[in-house]
């Protein structure tokens, strides 16, 4: 055998030994390479090296710590998810109100006034504001806040994604007051008697546009949950990650 043939044989052997290590050879091929290994110590040694390498790589997977939890909310239908989000938002608003009334205000008189202010704030919305669900787009509701700017009470919801995406939703009865500061993109719309504004921080325009469409649809009464779900998933996969 000349050098070129030797080299070709070596390459063939290397492929076969790898396939043997991976359990990919047919019985006849296994017998053939086993016979060659019995006659060639170098080949047998190569097989031992590759088997040990494979075992060590597999060890990485076996020892991999995993603290992930399956997000159970994702298996719910969009309508169920929306209901959960709204309930959570309402519970949060109530919890904030209760905490302020019970612990944060030193004087009873001031507590009563604050309670009235919250009651006025909530009652000031002619219809119940919608806090859209963007979970399918990877944006999770972080909290809901009630503010009292000059133009009247305002509900503010904050969403965050895993890679720095952030959204802020503002809802106000009638027309929205002055524009909120900051944000790389913003969009305003009206749904019935409420005005909505969505601000994005560091989110690509294409993704924001899809989320805006889904948000607008969710704030309408005749929304189609399946269509919204599709739209949000599209927003998640069709655009690059956030940079903010």
């Amino acid at each position: 055998m000349n050098d070129e043939e030797n080299s070709k044989q070596h390459d063939r052997d290397l492929l076969r030994i790898n396939a043997l290590v991976d359990g990919e050879l047919l019985p006849a091929e296994r017998a053939q390479i086993a016979a060659r290994m019995a006659a060639d110590r170098n080949l047998a040694r190569s097989h031992a090296t590759l088997a040990r390498l494979k075992a060590s790589v597999m060890e990485i997977a076996e020892d991999a710590p995993c603290t992930l939890s399956i997000p159970k909310v994702a298996v719910l239908r969009p309508r169920q998810r929306l209901a959960i989000r709204l309930t959570a938002a309402a519970a949060l608003v109530l919890a904030v109100s209760s905490a302020a009334w019970t612990f944060m205000l030193p004087a009873r008189q001031q507590a009563v006034r604050e309670q009235k202010e919250h009651a006025i704030t909530l009652a000031a919305f002619p219809v119940r504001p919608v806090v859209p669900d963007f979970a399918s787009a990877g944006l999770i509701l972080q909290g809901v806040d009630l503010r009292r700017p000059a133009g009247g009470p305002m509900l503010v919801a904050i969403y965050a994604g895993p890679r720095g995406c952030r959204l802020e939703l503002r809802v106000q009865a009638g027309d929205l007051a002055a524009e909120a500061p900051g944000g790389s993109s913003r969009h305003r719309w009206k749904a019935g008697e409420l005005s909505y504004e969505l601000l994005a921080f560091g989110m690509p325009e294409t993704r924001f546009a899809i989320i805006v469409g889904a948000a607008e649809r969710q704030t309408r009464i005749d929304m189609d949950p399946d269509a919204i779900e599709r739209q949000l998933r599209e927003a998640r996969v069709a655009a690059p990650p956030c940079v903010g």
Partner: peptide
């Protein structure tokens, strides 16, 4: 472990798998 081997970053691999699992569930 699979994602970590491809990406070479354990934290990022966890985020990526979490996202992938969420997408799969939906």
């Amino acid at each position: 472990a699979f994602a970590r081997t491809i990406l070479g970053d354990a934290d990022f691999a966890r985020d990526l798998v979490q996202e992938a699992a969420t997408r799969a569930l939906a």
